[in-house]
């Protein structure tokens, strides 16, 4: 990991006014709405994927297509170090934003006398953190495949294709197609049921899928970037 790269990435992401506005709305609006409506629980805050996406889109591809990566890699920085630093920067940044959102929700709920218990909040927060670290790895991989913010289009394509394949599998009662659809879904939307973990009844298959997807995505991202030629002469 390279702290200089992590810090520079955060500064770069926060230097965009549009991104700041989107993040602010995402942090403030859902907690305000969910805490205001009776009967809704903390889980109504939803997945953390949109939060991670705001920071993750173009995390590597933008540097490749702009040419900034050449200047970085002309320094004593390993390509693997660059990929892992980008992944960590997205994951830690999105985690902080997610925790801030949960904190605001808890504060607003507490002000209305309906604060959820610590266990509930902790389990929800942990589930989101795991999801963020997983999706950040997926985006790191996709971002090495395509320049600019094309990784977002790839992400959407895999999600849609996964849904379609899974649906066809169910309609045709094909366990193989259903499984493929589920795996594609797990790749773009990694998730671990923290409640099962806490209860001592974890789904080992889900855990293994999560760990292997995260590892595979990062290894592939490093391999692809290592193979990439960084000169416009090769473009």
């Amino acid at each position: 990991m390279n702290a200089t790269l992590v810090l520079a990435f955060w500064r770069q992401r926060l230097a965009s006014p549009i991104r700041l506005v989107i993040l602010s709305l995402m942090v403030l609006l859902p907690p305000a709405l969910v805490s205001a409506i009776r009967g809704l629980s903390i889980t109504s805050l939803g997945d953390a994927i949109p939060l991670a996406m705001v920071l993750a889109v173009g995390m590597i591809g933008q540097d490749v297509s702009s040419g900034v990566l050449q200047l970085i890699l002309a320094r004593p920085v390993r390509r693997s170090e660059y990929v892992l630093s980008r992944w960590l920067a997205v994951a830690l940044g999105a985690s902080a934003v997610s925790l801030l959102q949960i904190g605001i929700f808890w504060g607003l709920s507490a002000a209305r006398g309906a604060a959820p218990g610590f266990d509930t909040v902790a389990q929800f927060a942990l589930g989101r953190e795991l999801q963020i670290f997983g999706v950040a790895a997926t985006m790191a991989f996709l971002s090495t495949l395509i320049g600019g913010v094309g990784d977002l289009a790839l992400y959407a394509l895999i999600m849609i294709l996964g849904g379609i394949v899974g649906m066809i599998g169910q309609v045709r009662h094909s366990s193989v197609l259903t499984w493929i659809g589920q795996e594609m879904g797990a790749f773009v939307s990694p998730k671990i049921e923290v409640a099962q973990l806490v209860a001592g009844t974890p789904s080992w298959f889900t855990l293994a899928t999560y760990a292997s997807n995260l590892t595979l995505a990062l290894v592939l991202a490093i391999l692809i970037l290592n193979r990439k030629e960084l000169s416009y002469a090769s473009g």
């Binding site: 050449q70 890699l73 002309a74 030629e229 960084l230 000169s231 416009y232 002469a233 090769s234």
Partner: peptide, 11 residues
């Protein structure tokens, strides 16, 4: 440019 890219290890 290709030559320079090779000298720099980018190609």
């Amino acid at each position: 440019t290709t030559f320079l890219g090779c000298l720099l290890g980018f190609l």
